[in-house]
Each structure stands twice: as C-alpha cells, then as structure tokens.
Amino acid sequence: MGQILDFTLLFLLLVTAVATARVRDLFAAVMLSGIYGLVSASFFVTMDAVDVAFTEAAVGAGVFPLLLLAVLAMVGRYEKTAYRRPWAALILVTITGAMLVNGTLDMPAFGSADSPAQQHVAQRYIEESPEEIGIPNMVTSVLASYRGYDTLGEVVVIFTAAIGVLALLPSLGGGVRRKRESDGMGDHQVLRIVSKILMPVILLFALYVQFHGEYGPGGGFQAGVIFAAGIILYTMLFGLDTAQAVIKPSVLRVLAATGVLLYGGVGLLSFLSGANFLDYSALAEDPVSGQHIGIILIELGVGITVAAAIILIFFAFSEAAGENGEET
C-alpha cells in the first residue's frame, strides 16, 4: 500500500516536471510549480518527514509561487525564445544523470533500517534526545540544539536575502512615497469581512505553531511564514499603503536584525558560565531545563527574523510592482 502511494506521488511529480518543461505560458508554469511543491510536501508526509512537509508546503506551494506571481505581473506572462542548444544540454543532463544513477548502485537499499545513515550519528538523536533535551520532537532537538549552529546560519541566510532584496529593489521607507489610489481589493465587502475574521485566526495559529514545535511539527520558521502569510493577505486586501501604515518597513528592518541578534545573543550567553557557544545547558541550573529555555528563545529569534524578512521581501516586490504599474 505504502509503495503504491509513493509511486503515485513520484509519478505525479514526474508529470508535473515534464509539463513545466513543456508549457510556454509562465502563469501556467507558476501554477505547476506550486503543484510541484504541494505534491513534494505530500511525498514528505509519506516519508514520515512531517516538519519538512509543513515547511515545503508553506514555501514551495506558498511563498515561492506568490513571489513568482508578483514578478510576472511586472515582466509579462509569455516567454519568447525557443530552447537554446537543446542537444548539448540533453547530452550534459544525460551524463550527469547517468553518473547519479551509477552512484546510487552502491547505496544502501531504500528504507533499510540498518544502513549507516540510520545507524551512526542519528541513533543518538533518536535514543537519547528525549532525555538529553527533554522534548519529544527529535527534529526540533537536532535543529535547535545538536545542530543549532546550522539553524543560526539558516536564519542569517534569510536575513541576507532580505537585505539583498532591499538593496536591489526600490527603497523602502526611504524617499518620498506617493499616495496611491486604493490598490487592494478592499472594496469587496465579503472579502473584507471574511478576512477580518480570518486574520486573528491566522496570527493565533502562527503563535501556536511557534510554541508547539517541541511537541509536534512546527517551530520558528513555519510560524514566521504563517505570520507573514497573514500580513500578506492583509496587504493584498487593503493595499500596500494601509499595510505599511500598520507595520512600518523601518520597524521590520529592526525586527529582522533583532531575530538574528537574539539567536546569537543566546549563544553568547553560554559564555558567561564558561560553556561553548550555543550550549543551552549552561542557561539554567538543570541542563535539561537550560536546553528548554535556549530552544524557546532561539525559536523565537527564528520566527521574528523569518516573519520580518518575508514581509519585507513581499513589500519590496509589491512596491516595485506598484511603480511598474504607474510607468506603463
């Protein structure tokens, strides 16, 4: 049964990928890309990777297509040129693929429980993290503590992207902004009311995901994305100006920086009691409760930076789209 499901999902992915390669309408390609994200997320669920599925659904079927749509609104939806040098590319891709297939031949069989990947480092995470860290979700334990430094890097990556986008797209908050006519969809009475009911639910859900990551799937990143999604929904309905009046870009910049600094600051706190960077055990008398405090704090840092960065990026794109609209 499980195998049939796996195979069906993989087959769907294959169909989606081929369709993406063939379709000439970029709008359709964006939709296919969203489908690809959603099907991958479903596949992750069948692979028991619920945290990853959650994130992939939010990113692959949410944030990415949304950004693509914002860009298509500016650059047009049909592509012009035909394939360039398709044969050379086909040869290159075939060679690369053949090397990969050849590489799989000596890999441990799919799903085996006694392969090195399952045996060596991972075993400790599975067997001891519930006692060492004191929380049931092992993914959160590894993410926030054993490999907490990678996660700091991850937060810095999204921070870097936000700074890069700010540096490239028309300035946010700086310079004189013209007041635009209502550019949202706020005139629709039904949308207005539904969204007003929906907003608090979305934001509450974000908070739930933020603090529930230790017990179930979720955590700072997912919470940040959901929170950002709420604000993005608000922006789409009521227009950029209204949204920026509620949440000022200058505040978002400070928040994006604060999240990273909070994370790094928790790491530096460990120095005070002579422990290494990011050693949360040093944060309290009892190592396990120290881990607990550390994880809550750094997840908060992740959530703040991710939410602020994604909202900033979305604002920057909307603003660019607005200017584009005025020119044409």
Binding site: D48, D51, V52, G60, F64, V157, A161, A162, L168
Partner: peptide, 22 residues
C-alpha cells in the same frame, strides 16, 4: 525515521527560497 536529513532539508528549503527571492 531518521531526523537528521529532515533537519538538513529544513535548512536547505530556507536557503532555496532565500536564493529565489534574491
């Protein structure tokens, strides 16, 4: 299931969307 690749991919997904935004 092995939690470690899950963690690595969580990071990689974030890196991916960051690259795409830029």
């Amino acid at each position: 299931s092995n939690p470690l690749p899950h963690v690595l991919i969580l990071t990689a997904i974030v890196v991916g969307i960051a690259t795409m935004a830029l």
